[in-house]
Write a protein that binds this DNA or RNA. Structure first.
Lengths: 158, 158
DNA sequence: CCATCCGAATTGACGTGTCAATGCTGCAAC
DNA sequence: GTTGCAGCATTGACACGTCAATTCGGATGG
């Protein structure tokens, strides 16, 4: 009659949780280190250069870039600093807006991106795509959506 | 007749890949920051203290601890240094083995773990368990297994 | 005119993680 | 013995990310 109110996960759920997080993490690291060895880029560098490569003039306002790749501004600032030191991008004050900075991929940056791009995509296929069936893709897609949707409302609910 | 050999993922696969990684990451961060605010522990601290809490005498050899939680030794060393500064654990040279260190959870550490544990598990339920159906758990479990199995063989294959 | 706030971006302090050395001690080969 | 190697753990240098200030020049309002 009295149904036990379960406030904490079962052992099984906890195991699945940990496997989920851990697997995603390991996969990310693997991809990252392959990218690194093939093109001397980190995943962060790659995301930045990818966004720039799709922008007119290989150029974006820092704030737009941040929005595109969904990074905090401070994180982007730090990262751009590091990338600038390695000559992958340049930052120039933005004409027409006193604040605001244009981020531009240098030739070096574009080369590195081109070099890394195909091997990186191939690695995604090898490490991720090749491991799953079409049904599993659909399931995973639904799961990610569900989790993200839940995240969005969670702070208020319960 | 000539079937196109696809070496890179489709747009769709890439989107699912990114959502997967990103979702897991965000979820991890959320859990981490809740843990932090509820008990002043990081997820790393929590993993370490969890392992110690299940060990006799709340004590483990550093290398065993590393194996249990699957951390690189260097990472553990750094982390233990930080935890020691905060009085969460102590390290004492291990009697009977000249190399080797026993890691012991202090009272402070045990208290923090006890304080954080239930809220943390509750957070896992709220943010993760509550978002998915039983079928989705099963799917996710299978997916993680598939990915991990694939990872294990991948370096050699293809 | 001056105070104040705002938006864009940066900075500093700090926790975290990786990789590549480095300590340190016992043990085995010679 | 001493030379050298193996195992356990630490260290240092550096990349990365977060949070909480901070800078800076333009609006706004009094």
């Amino acid at each position: 009659m009295a149904e036990k109110l379960r406030t904490t996960p079962t052992r099984e759920q906890l195991r699945i949780w940990r496997d989920y997080i851990e697997t995603a993490h390991v996969l990310g690291m693997r991809l990252g280190s392959r990218l690194q060895s093939e093109s001397s880029l980190s995943s962060g560098d790659y995301q930045v250069l990818l966004a720039l490569s799709e922008a007119p003039q290989h150029t974006l306002r820092s704030s737009q870039l941040a929005a595109l790749i969904e990074w905090e501004r401070s994180r982007l600032s730090h990262h751009l600093g590091r990338m600038e030191k390695r000559q992958l991008i340049r930052r120039v004050p933005c004409a027409g807006d006193v604040h605001g900075v244009d981020v531009i991929a240098t030739d070096t940056g574009r080369d590195a991106f081109r070099t890394g791009s195909v091997p990186h995509l191939r690695a995604v296929r090898e490490l991720f795509v090749d491991a799953l069936t079409p049904e599993q893709f659909a399931h995973l897609d639904a799961i990610s959506r569900a989790l993200r949707a839940h995240l969005r409302v969670d702070p208020a609910e319960e």
